[in-house]
Design a protein around this nucleic acid. Structure first.
Length: 486
RNA sequence: GCUCCCUUCGUCUAGUGGUUAGGACGAGAGAUUCUCAGUCUUUAAACAGGGGUUCGACUCCCCUAGGGAGUACCA
């Protein structure tokens, strides 16, 4: 493997970064790192219709969030000229025109109206010939030059042979062959607005940037033969191709909004850690040895092996992501968690200072799947509560009378409490009462829990009461008794 | 429609001709426990179907079925 590995992630700023794109970026990055190669970022913004600056910024933000730093790319140096395709249009134009001069491409003046009509005709007649009818392919260079000089709108199309077939070896899928007649006839490589289409820009840039391996989603598979023809037309050696399996939703369809979150920014705002996203997403379609699954980014940079990428599409399992996230949250220090949790408290409108967040962390840390779950778990500590259902106060199998009884037992205990130590003593005292009465502990604690937290599910009761304070505990118990007796 | 690709537990996967087909998530059971979690133990769960090749197929070949993608002046 003499040559240095050079790979690229080449997203289009036509939407927010999709989790599938994140995986592509990660695979490229890990492949580069594990081979001592270079990871290049290139922005493919040749679609001027769908482009938005926000989307472009999101590309940079996403990689920054993941800690994936390009060796070359916009703002990252390198010697391949601009890494944003819209800044390279003159390059594409020149190469495309060279192809025309060499007779491998030609100017086409067909209007979109004619093309639409053609398509309609072909559908109706169910004719086997599909796509462009190569009308302009017969135009003489002089005639074409004259029409261009006259200011007529035009595109450049690549001549596709109608005979023979084109094959290549995909690093993941193996040998793939496609008949030339099945390739869309004479595809446009330079649009009428002067911008290249994906195919042209992609091939030129991958060559000029010295890309050794193209790792991208499998949806590109059908256009590889076209790209091979482009490489041939230029007289270039194609790089190696590695087509990644698609990421699907639970129903086997391409992962989309209706399955849940799809953009990286959504996952971030829900409170997924970069560690869990990197770890889990890498495992969608790739495995180390089938046993070990927990990897840090640093470990993946060493251990990633392209030959272990699975060829078949993989379903994105949100539950497993949750599991990774909970695990990585538990690995965080309390200090780190304060910073991580703060934005979620702000976003959910729960005003709590850093010291407050620090105090609730022990209560929620082992209960969190997502960072955004935290505020709801501890809201009762910072805001007044309202009770909803009397049944919430009774332990399983108990009647309301039992709940009221033990609330009344607990009340004086709290009324007499002064210090934290007293609260500990109350817990012991209530345990004794349940034993003496021969009832399960929960019969005593459930009414109290619901009185304090307004929910039958909560963080540990007495740790919560300690944060709440005895006074509030007393008033909530009283309020609960009133509520239950009303 | 046409072309190409894919097919091991519900899901992600290990396996590369001879295995009790392994792991993880999820699910079930149990333990711990004031609820929920967490932790620990544990159970069920798969080679799409049919032909070959072979002494022997999850592993190799073919067919069928199912799934996916592409078929743009979008990437």
């Amino acid at each position: 493997m003499g040559d240095t590995v050079r790979v690229r992630y080449a997203p289009s700023p036509t939407g927010y970064q999709h989790i599938g794109g994140v995986r592509t970026a990660l695979y490229n990055y890990f492949f580069a790192k594990s081979n001592g190669g270079k990871f290049i970022l290139r922005v493919e913004d040749t679609d001027r219709e769908r482009f938005a600056p926000d989307y472009q910024q999101d590309i940079f933000d996403s990689l920054a969030f993941l800690g994936v730093v390009p060796d070359e790319g916009p703002g990252f140096g390198g010697e391949c000229g601009p890494y944003i395709q819209s800044e390279r249009v003159s390059i594409y134009r020149e190469y495309a025109e060279n192809l025309v001069k060499a007779g491998k491409a030609y100017y086409c003046f067909c209007t979109s109206e004619r093309l639409e009509q053609l398509k309609k005709q072909q559908e109706q007649s169910k004719s086997s010939s599909q796509g462009y009818d190569r009308k302009c392919s017969a135009l003489s260079p002089d005639e074409a030059a004259a029409r261009i000089a006259a200011g007529e709108s035009h595109v450049i199309r690549l001549r596709i042979p109608t005979e023979g077939s084109t094959s290549f070896d995909d690093e993941i899928l193996g040998r793939i062959t496609r008949k030339n007649k099945d390739i869309t006839p004479d595809p446009i490589i330079l649009k009428s607005d002067g911008f290249p289409t994906y195919h042209l820009a992609n091939v030129i840039d991958d060559h000029l940037m010295g890309i050794t391996h193209i790792m991208r989603a499998q949806e590109w598979l059908p256009s590889v033969p076209l790209h091979i023809m482009l490489y041939d037309a230029f007289g270039w050696q194609p790089p190696k191709f590695c087509h990644l399996p698609m990421v699907m939703g639970k129903d086997g369809q391409k992962l989309s909004k209706r399955h849940g979150s799809t953009s990286l920014r959504q996952f971030i705002s829900e409170g997924y850690l970069k560690e869990s996203i990197i770890n889990y997403v890498t495992l969608v379609g790739w495995a180390y040895d089938g046993e070990r699954e927990v990897f840090s980014k640093q470990e993946l940079e060493k251990v990633f092996d392209m030959s272990k990428i699975h060829p078949s599409p993989a379903v994105f399992d949100y539950k497993k992501l949750d599991w990774f996230n909970g695990m990585y949250i538990r690995e965080k220090s309390d200090a780190e968690l304060v910073d991580l949790l703060r934005p979620h408290f702000n976003e959910q409108g729960l005003v709590v200072g850093d010291d407050g967040i620090a105090r609730i962390i022990p209560l929620v840390k082992e209960r969190l799947k997502k960072l955004s779950d935290a505020p709801a778990m501890v809201r009762f500590l910072f805001e007044n509560v309202t009770y909803h259902d009397k049944k919430d106060f009774a332990a399983k199998g108990d009647g309301l009378d039992v709940a009221i009884h033990y609330l009344k037992q607990a009340l004086p205990l709290f009324e007499n409490a002064k210090t934290d130590d007293d609260i500990d003593a109350i817990e012991e005292r209530l345990q004794e009462i349940s034993k003496a009465d021969g009832v399960k502990a929960n019969s005593v604690f459930m009414p109290l829990r619901t009185a304090i937290t307004a929910s039958p599910v909560s963080p540990p009761l007495f740790a919560s009461i300690r944060l709440l304070g005895v006074d509030k505990a007393v008033s909530r118990i009283k309020a609960a008794i009133t509520f239950l007796e009303s």
